[in-house]
């Protein structure tokens, strides 16, 4: 337990049984009133944000979260399998908690996972990642002009639109949040 007045940006709290991270904190003293802290909290698991105002003297349940490096092994359609690179222990993470991550994580790649006890709160996938284009049709002659896009499938199975000039086997950089093509990468 900590006093609400001690909460800082980055403090992890348990609110109604759910872990949240403090992303903004502001002290407020209403005229003639006691001291309050206005908090903006974010659930690392669901991305949900929450506004909370607490008296500085209110108790808050703080929790310890930690980041660890894991290797992504595979998914079986229900769970992602990860291996802790320090002790080789394997863990399973329900795919429904991280929808669509199978399309942005690469087998064998390492990721930082945010954990609270045994629960994985976050899988930190870099915001820009390079993928190999495994399927795309060659552009028809004359369709390589700027602005013309076509479908492509990446090594993870992710389907995106790429410019006409991208060829199968080439590498592209992708924004993993919007899942949009950013640029061609030449080795």
């Amino acid at each position: 337990m900590i006093k609400a007045g001690q909460i800082e940006k980055g403090t992890a709290l348990l609110i109604k049984g759910q872990p949240f991270l403090c992303i903004e904190r502001e002290f407020v003293n209403p005229g003639k009133g006691s001291a309050f802290v206005r908090l903006k909290l974010k659930s690392p698991a669901t991305g949900q944000t929450l506004s909370e105002t607490m008296k500085s003297q209110d108790n808050a349940e703080d929790i310890t979260i930690e980041d660890r490096t894991f290797q992504y092994l595979y998914n079986d359609g229900e769970n992602f399998a990860f291996m802790n690179v320090e002790n080789y222990e394997q863990i399973e993470v329900p795919m429904k908690s991280f929808e669509g991550y199978e399309y942005i994580m690469k087998d064998g790649e390492t990721y930082r996972l945010t954990l609270w006890e045994d629960q994985v709160l976050d899988i930190q996938v870099p915001s820009k990642v390079v993928y190999v284009v495994t399927e795309t049709e060659d552009a028809a002659r004359g369709d390589t002009v700027q602005g013309v896009t076509k479908d492509a499938v990446l090594e993870t199975g992710l389907k995106i639109r790429v410019p006409g000039f991208i060829k199968q086997g080439e590498k592209v950089r992708v924004n993993t949040e919007t899942r949009e093509y950013l640029e061609r990468v030449n080795d």
Binding site: V28, P30, G33, L50, S51
Partner: peptide, 25 residues
Amino acid sequence: LNLYVPDSESWEDTFNRIFLTYVET
């Protein structure tokens, strides 16, 4: 309004929770 209110609290403090979270902002 989804605000946490401890078991015993003054009128003023509960009012301020609402005011500071939803009104002042």
